[in-house]
Design a protein around this nucleic acid. Sequence first.
DNA 1: CCTTGACTTCAAGTTAACTTGAATATGTAC
DNA 2: GTACATATTCAAGTTAACTTGAAGTCAAGG
Lengths: 144, 144
Amino acid sequence: MKPLSIGEVAKRTGIRTSALRYYEEAGILPTPARVSGQRRYDADAIHRIDVLRFAQQAGFTLEEIKTLFNGFGRETPLSSRWRSLAKAKLRELDLLAVRVQRMRHAIELGLKCGCIRVEDCTLSPAHIPEGNGRREKAGCARSC
Amino acid sequence: MKPLSIGEVAKRTGIRTSALRYYEEAGILPTPARVSGQRRYDADAIHRIDVLRFAQQAGFTLEEIKTLFNGFGRETPLSSRWRSLAKAKLRELDLLAVRVQRMRHAIELGLKCGCIRVEDCTLSPAHIPEGNGRREKAGCARSC
DNA sequence: CCTTGACTTCAAGTTAACTTGAATATGTAC
DNA sequence: GTACATATTCAAGTTAACTTGAAGTCAAGG
């Protein structure tokens, strides 16, 4: 397979050229070969982009994917980097799932409120036990 | 109950003073009474803040909450504004739940990959059928 | 009178993951 | 050779929901 231009890669992977350049700039993808200044992507590069996309759709942040690709020192095999990140991500996903159920419950509770004015509303945060207050990043996956 | 200062409301509701001012600025909360320039919140105002917090924890965006409080024209009772938003939000939550399960599945698939280098990895986006490409805001709740 | 603490406004910064725009260069078709 | 598509870099903009910082006001305590 011939090396592809950035536009062809974009068509094939569904990732915009601006995003591809951004990943490169951010150190997530290696800088591809150049032909008179223009990027040329070979099969390996494209495969790496596919894996990136897979990981991203599975809920990993770009920072995590960068770690997956480059981190942990050069000797660690990919599969064990995967395991390390994936286990943490699974825990996060489980927390998110619980949260979603709580939210569902809260909304169904809200649907039962027949109030006319805000002042008459019987809802209050006491009814939805989310534990602590604001600003918890935990339990929250990407692309949200 | 005496009117409370913004700091006291913050303590009581767990919402920072900066956030309270922000909500007011954004037109989500009404401007409270003032005593020599300083905000004083009465019981109604505090109740409204509680409802705001409830809705927010249930996954509504501030924009939706603003609509809930002010939108729909003055005549529509709160309960029917609720229903309208809540039903849409429930659908969103269900989509999110499905997505979370797909993500779980993808990650478990990733855990099975025994690859050493990225190039050997057998994963690709084909294995995780997320439907279309990027940038779908749907199925995604707040505070993520 | 002076300090301390809580309050005020307003502008600008934060985070993630990109996108958009401007100015310029290169490749392809006719 | 002349368009026109596509490429390049770089800086700045986008979104949501706030936070942070600067500079100033105000009341109470010692």
